[in-house]
């Protein structure tokens, strides 16, 4: 028993570590598990957002005096890219539901590119900021929130790559079995929603 488990453990992609191995015709609970996981994840962000809102409301001057204004143009474009990528990705899922693997691949590839642009944009923004992580409470919050979100985007990208690699295998995804597609998409939507809230809180408010 041991041997088998370990082998499968290694060949599985991370998003499926948390799921049973079978790809047979049983009812499968993995999406249920993914949803529970995302509920937990959302509470990490919620915790940080609430902390941010408290700082905002109790610190006399917010952002503290001398904090340079945040540029809105680049992150604005970034937001639009990320939000639209969610719709693009959804077309990928629709494609696989019609057993259209190449459609899946195209749409997911576009999503990945959009995600990568988002990350690149964020890195560019970081490198052009006039403040650092420890300048003051606002800047620390800024970096930790956007950075933690960026980490999630990165994970999301990895998931998309796994789906892309897996989809090379003929018949791996089909209209019957597309857990990986569905899970990575849900995750991506989640990351997206978090960003919209984050953008509102940090940039707009």
């Amino acid at each position: 028993m041991q041997g088998t488990t370990t082998d499968e453990y290694q060949t599985n992609s991370p998003q499926e570590v948390e799921a049973a191995a079978e790809h047979e015709e049983h009812e499968d609970y993995r999406m249920f598990g993914v949803v529970l996981f995302l509920i937990a994840e959302s509470f990490i962000f919620l915790g940080m957002f609430v902390a941010f809102v408290i700082y905002r409301s109790v610190v006399p001057v917010w952002p503290p005096e001398g904090t340079p204004e945040l540029e809105l143009l680049l992150p604005g474009i970034n937001t639009i890219i990320l939000v639209s990528s969610s719709f693009v990705m959804h077309r990928g899922q629709s494609a696989i539901k019609n057993n259209d693997t190449s459609g899946l691949r195209v749409w997911f590839a576009i999503t990945a590119v959009m995600g990568a642009i988002f990350l690149a944009g964020q890195l560019y923004e970081y490198s052009n900021l006039e403040f650092g992580l420890t300048t003051n409470l606002f800047t620390s919050s800024f970096f930790v929130l956007t950075g933690f979100h960026g980490l999630h985007v990165t994970v999301g990208l990895l998931l998309i790559f796994f789906v892309l690699i897996r989809s090379q295998q003929p018949g791996h995804y089909s209209s019957e079995s597309y857990f990986g597609v569905e899970a990575s998409e849900l995750y991506w939507h989640f990351v997206d929603v978090v960003w919209v809230i984050l953008f509102g809180l940090v940039y707009l408010l």
Binding site: I54, S57, V58, V59, P60, V61, P64, E65, G66, T134, T135, N136
Partner: peptide, 14 residues
């Protein structure tokens, strides 16, 4: 009522 941090300071160094 908790007014939050009342004495604030602005960080100059690291």
């Amino acid at each position: 009522q908790d007014p939050g941090p009342q004495k604030v300071s602005y960080r100059s160094g690291q």
